[in-house]
Amino acid sequence: MIPSRSAMAKYTRLALAALAFAATGLAVPAPAAAQSVVEFGASYTADVLTAASGSPVRGTDLVGRADAWLDFKGPVVGLDALSAHLDLIAVHGPDFSGNRIGAYQTVSSLEADTLPHVYEAWAQWKPNDFVSAKAGLIDLNAEFDIQNTGAIFVNSAFGIGPDISQSGLAGPSIFPMTSSAFVLRLQYGRKALALGAFDAVAGARDDPRKAAVRFPGTTGALLIAETRLPIGTWLLQAGGWHYTTRFDALDPAKPPAVSRGAYAMLEGALTRKLSAWIRFGIADARANPVAAYLGGGAVATLGNWRVGVAAAHARLGEAAQQTLFAPERARLGETVLEFTAQRQLAPWLNIQPDLQYVIHPGWDHTARNTLVLGMRFSLAIPE
């Protein structure tokens, strides 16, 4: 049917009105974009490290870590209390700290001997702001002993204390290999209590470079608890950890020993642009080389830069002094001093020149103090 003249005139007016509306540069508002149920992210961080004066093997190496992750958002599909996370990692580079310096406190937090694998895979149930429960492959250091101010530094001692990171057959459930775990967290404002049960062995029993999923406690358990208490604008963290299985004592003449320890950390803002922290930890010296650790530092915002200075001191236990070295060669402490500066050049790129000075590397009296020059590059695809 051919439209009438009046209808044609009506359509013409509507078309002209639409053209005029478009010509003003305005558009009809589109429906709000639906929130994604699954979000993706990826990152790559690399350290270029040079062992300079003092190193017995001078030279430059590159170490790096790549991550790709997926986050499941339960509230998008009506599962308000549920979320999940999957993280895949790949690491490359030599043992810079061991080969060139002989340091115990790893110069770069990216150094690891591992194969590409699933790093984290967990589900979390959080029915309200007070309680949450998480189960799966979990990085212990993402839940406990978190040094927020110290996270900017390159040395691994400022990520998690060496009093904890030394424990276990091949390290606890931290980078580069995690173990299956349950974590319960109770939180009221800034006050919190966290309880964790991790399988005692991170990775496969026959090859720690490979991931493995076991029910927590299959090979024994690492139990850990931490409380967080506000002190004015500062926050006090205090925790303790304990393995249910015993380990070979450092002194072969002694019976198997318990591996356990405790730590405390105070962290907060000194001014609007300056924050600081200090951390102290101890471990059972019968089963662990590091009997005590003291570390801390400060980070300031200066224009477009975040600048930090920190120190880490790992104290050798008596059993380790007597068994790891000839008596005349053992130093009591290894100390690392670090100065770093970080700047964001783009939303996806950070650069970070870094300087470290390692004193008495590996507690060896014959080892020379070593200067390490570094540059970190961090690239990220936002989630």
Score class of each variant (00 low, 15 high):
Thr50Asn: 05
Ala51Cys: 02
Ala51Gln: 02
Pro56Asn: 08
Arg58Ser: 15
Gly59Asn: 06
Thr60Ser: 02
Leu62Val: 15
Val63Ala: 05
Ala68Leu: 11
Leu70Asp: 12
Lys73Val: 08
Lys73Tyr: 14
Gly74Tyr: 13
Pro75Met: 10
Pro75Trp: 14
Val76Asn: 13
Val77Ile: 15
Val77Ser: 10
Leu79Asn: 08
Asp80Tyr: 10
Ala81Met: 12
Leu82Cys: 06
Leu82Gly: 08
Leu82His: 06
Ser83Asp: 15
Ala84Asn: 12
Ala84Val: 09
Leu86Phe: 07
Leu88Gly: 13
Ile89Thr: 03
Val91Asp: 03
His92Met: 05
Asp95Asn: 07
Gly98Pro: 03
Ile101Thr: 13
Val107Ile: 10
Val107Ser: 04
Ser109Phe: 00
Glu111Pro: 05
Glu111Tyr: 00
Glu111Arg: 02
Asp113Arg: 01
Thr114Trp: 00
Leu115Val: 05
Val118Ser: 04
Ala121Arg: 01
Trp125Leu: 15
Asn128Leu: 06
Val131Arg: 11
Ala133Val: 15
Gly136Lys: 05
Ile138Gly: 02
Ile138Val: 14
Asn141Pro: 04
Asn141Gly: 07
Asp145Ala: 11
Gln147Asn: 05
Gln147Met: 05
Gln147Phe: 07
Thr149Cys: 12
Thr149Ile: 14
Gly150Ser: 08
Gly150Phe: 07
